[in-house]
Computed example of a mutant assay.
Amino acid sequence: MAKDDITKSFKFIGTRPNRPDGFEKVTGRAKYGADISAVGMLHGAVLRSPYAHARIKSINFEKAAKLDGVKAIITRDDFPKDREGEPLKLLENTIAGEIAYYDGHAIAAVAATSVFTAKEALKEIEVEYEVLPHVIDVDEAMKPDAPIVRENAGDFSVPEGSSPNVASYIEFGRGDLANGFNKADIVKSGLFKTEAAHQGYIEPHACMAQLDHNGQGEMWVCTQGHWYIRQMCSEVLGLEASKLCVTPSEIGGGFGGKTTIFIEPLALALSKKSGGRPVKIVMSRSEVLRATGPTASASMDVKIGMTKDGYLTAGCVEFRMQGGAFGGSPVSEALQCAFASYNMDAVHHIGFDVLANRPRAAAYRAPGSPMAAFAVESLIDEMCTDLNLDPI
């Protein structure tokens, strides 16, 4: 229906309304994840692998359990053993089983009456490791002689003969590439690499969780999506999602990095093992950088054909992205972004999701797109310089 009358005054547009959370933040009353507390609350701490790839031969926490104030210690044995698919990957990334897949991978966790006691208990846990070869560069991971991160990790899409570290493969396009490149006055290609970059949010991950023996639980979490946290935690721990209530706290930045789980299932498991007492875990900055998901690193081949007047005749890309030890890099989104701004008659896209001994990648501001735009636009700028064209 046509709107003939133009509205010239609005309730909020064109005004400067007060921020609904402004008063609490400027007065310091806003509660962030680390500010949450409860009566009888315990403090959690996490023991992390010092190796990028190692087999866990044994864990002995008898000495730690005897420390005054220690109320619960958990390892992978305290989690369900029947997880599979995505819930298994989430669980594996949360706490190591037989193998630690990256530096900082959680091995065990302690709940105690003070942060000091919990950290002292970690020092008393004895872990015997068998150090294994590791790989962190995406191109190195695809070589035939590269250390295998996880056996049989590739899905149905992976071409025969690919590296065991390829988790999935994508290919799509349209048009006649050869004909498109033949029409071009200049054809140029380039290799572009980007390293994994962390979101760098100011507030480290923090949560407080309580879980009783009936599977009824509550969580207070600094998160970008409390429904995500509820679903993921319930899948990892084998709980009914309807019995888990998640309350988001104020958040000191996330940028995509707080849309998944890291310490939350550990806090719930510690709470249950300590008799249902609330358990709070607050990550240090070091833990955040070592053990939470940054964006994926990438290695990208780009080839483009262009006429003297700046018309793009054809383009092809091959993107290789590592999403950590459990897959899930944003290579699909990167491929979709690569030539999305241009009208080309012939395009071809190939993508590899590659495993490496790093934490599982998480979202970061339009996942995959910054890397793709960097590679494609850099090559287009070079071609415009060669043809004396304005790159804009």
Rank of each mutant, 00 (worst) to 15 (best):
I136A: 09
G180K: 02
P144Q: 02
D155K: 11
N214Y: 07
C222I: 01
F156R: 03
A178K: 02
M142D: 08
G161Y: 02
D137F: 05
E203R: 05
I148N: 11
N182C: 04
G225E: 04
N152S: 14
M219C: 07
A196C: 08
D145Q: 09
L211M: 05
C222Y: 04
Q224W: 06
C207A: 14
V127E: 13
V187G: 07
D176Q: 03
S162Q: 01
H134D: 12
E126P: 00
N182W: 04
I186K: 05
H226Y: 03
E130P: 08
A184Y: 04
M208Y: 02
V187H: 06
V158W: 10
K188A: 09
N182S: 11
F156S: 09
E130D: 14
E124T: 04
A206L: 06
E171I: 01
D176L: 01
V131P: 06
E195Q: 14
Y169Q: 05
D137Y: 10
G217T: 06
S163R: 11
L191I: 15
A141D: 01
G173M: 10
R150K: 15
E195G: 10
E160V: 15
P144F: 09
V149A: 13
A146N: 10
M142T: 15
L191M: 14
V131I: 15
G173H: 07
E171N: 12
P147H: 12
E130M: 06
D185K: 01
V221P: 02
G173F: 02
F192V: 12
C222G: 12
Q224S: 01
P147M: 13
K143I: 03
M208P: 00
I125D: 02
E126G: 02
H226P: 13
G215Q: 07
Y201H: 12
G190F: 02
P164I: 10
Q199A: 15
I136V: 15
R174S: 08
G200E: 10
E130I: 11
Y129Q: 11
F181R: 05
A197T: 15
D145K: 11
A206T: 08
T223P: 06
Q224I: 05
G225S: 13
H198K: 10
G180V: 00
M219K: 05
P147R: 13
E124N: 14
Q210K: 14
I125Y: 08
K143A: 15
F172N: 04
M219N: 05
N165E: 12
E151H: 13
F172K: 13
A206F: 03
V221E: 05
E160H: 08
P133I: 06
K143R: 15
E151R: 13
E126V: 13
E195W: 08
G180T: 04
C222T: 12
D139W: 12
V138C: 09
L177F: 08
A141K: 09
K193L: 08
A206Y: 00
N182G: 01
L211C: 10
E151D: 14
E126F: 11
F156E: 07
P147D: 09
K183C: 03
G180P: 04
T194E: 14
Q216Y: 09
N152H: 14
V166A: 14
R150S: 13
